[in-house]
Every structure is written in structure tokens, then in C-alpha cells.
């Protein structure tokens, strides 16, 4: 029997996007591009079930409707471009701040070992974005919905972040939907590229 894809979208409709159907296998990075205002972020919000919309999504064999909203979002995790921090210290936002793989990831993303003790009020927007990615992965999701994950980063950190994300997605493996603007980035990370044109997603020829 054929293994079902990790994430399957069945006729998702939100805003002016209509009946978006898509399959993403474990280890796949599907990049999503489109002009601003075309509904990329809202599509990710719909998949994470944060807004009322039409259609159904599946994680493996299980329909989204069979999960509690919070359980679904714990597995299919949306990571917004600007992450929010509500406790005083960075580490308080992590499920297990002493985990070994977390320390390795911190170093890979260019952070000092004591970054988890930092005051969140002192974080720059780039630090917030990288730590937001790290925090999401630390919750061990199955699917990543990445909304411009490198939007606030400089060139060095973009390279670090891409490498780290690809490694996480490949090793676990995770399925990823990655909203991006930069065509070079898409060429570097994507296994598939879809472009929003009007109401639909169109596959893009590339490489």
C-alpha cells in the first residue's frame, strides 16, 4: 500500500484563493511565492486552522477535523515572520530548555550558549525570528508552515538559517510549506515551487 503524504490539502478556500489542493511528503520543501496581498499568509493561517475557511486538511491518514484545534496546530505548526514573546526570559518559552539538540541548534543558528537566559525585551527582530524558528522546532511538529522565515535576517544569517532548516526538515523528516519572495532562495531550498496566480496555485518550472 502506498504511504499517504504527510500533509494533504483538500480544496482549501480562503480569501480569494479557491479550492487549493496540495500534497507535501515528509522531507519535501514546497516553496510558495506570489505578489503581496495574494493571500500567502492567509493560506498558511487556514492550513493551521487559525481562521474560518472552506476545505479539509489531512495529516497522514487523519483528517484535521478529528484533532482538537490545539493538537492539530501542535503538529502542523505555523511560524510567523515576527514571533511574539510573552515571558521575561527566552528559555521560558521552550518546552525543554536543557535539551542537548537545542544547544547544538543554538550554535548552528549563531547564538551564544547563554541565549536562553536573555531578556526578551533586548532581542532584535532578526534574533526574534531565528529564536522563533528554534522555539517552533523545539515543540517537535510534523509539518512546518514557514512564513518568510528569513525576512528579518542579514546575508550570513540567511545562509545559516537555510542550512539549519533544511537539515531539520531532512533529518526528522518534516514536511514544509515555505513562503518566500527571493527566487534565489527558492532555487536553493525548494524541492517544488508553486506560484499564486489569481485564485489558484500554479507549479513553476525551475532548475
Amino acid at each position: 500500500m502506498k504511504q499517504p503524504p504527510l500533509l494533504r490539502l483538500d480544496a482549501i478556500s480562503i480569501g480569494h484563493l479557491h479550492a487549493v489542493s496540495l500534497e507535501v511528503a515528509a522531507g519535501d520543501i514546497v516553496c510558495l511565492s506570489g505578489p503581496s496581498g495574494s493571500g500567502k499568509t492567509r493560506l498558511l493561517r487556514a492550513i493551521a486552522d487559525l481562521e474560518p475557511h472552506g476545505g479539509e486538511a489531512w495529516l497522514g491518514n487523519i483528517a484535521r477535523g478529528d484533532w482538537r484545534g490545539s493538537d492539530w496546530r501542535h503538529r502542523v505548526m505555523l511560524i510567523p515572520a515576527d514571533s511574539q514573546w510573552w515571558y521575561e526570559r527566552v528559555g521560558e518559552h521552550f518546552p525543554d530548555p536543557r535539551c542537548e539538540s537545542l544547544k547544538a541548534s543554538l550554535a548552528q543558528l549563531g547564538f551564544a550558549a547563554d541565549a536562553l537566559d536573555w531578556d526578551v525585551a533586548q532581542l532584535s527582530s532578526g534574533e526574534k525570528q531565528r529564536l522563533g524558528l528554534l522555539r517552533a522546532i523545539a515543540h517537535r511538529p510534523k509539518v512546518l508552515l514557514l512564513d518568510e522565515p528569513t525576512a528579518n535576517l542579514d546575508a550570513d544569517n540567511i545562509t545559516r538559517c537555510e542550512a539549519w532548516l533544511r537539515q531539520q526538515i531532512c533529518d526528522t523528516p518534516l514536511a514544509a510549506l515555505w513562503v518566500a519572495h527571493d527566487m534565489d532562495q527558492i532555487a536553493r531550498v525548494a524541492t517544488r515551487h508553486l506560484h499564486i496566480a489569481g485564485q489558484h496555485l500554479e507549479p513553476q518550472a525551475w532548475k
Binding site: 482538537r68 484545534g69 493538537d71 511560524i79 510567523p80 511574539q84 510573552w86
Partner: peptide, 20 residues
């Protein structure tokens, strides 16, 4: 709302996300 939604995105239950 941004904080609450971010907490929801991480898989928190609604009463955790709005608890404070």
C-alpha cells in the same frame, strides 16, 4: 491578539493562550 495567536500556533490550548 498577536501574542495569543502565536501561543495558539505553538499548539497551546485556548485557555493556556489566554490564561494570563
Amino acid at each position: 491578539r498577536a501574542v495569543i495567536e502565536n501561543r495558539l500556533m505553538l499548539g497551546q490550548r485556548w485557555h493556556e493562550a489566554v490564561g494570563d
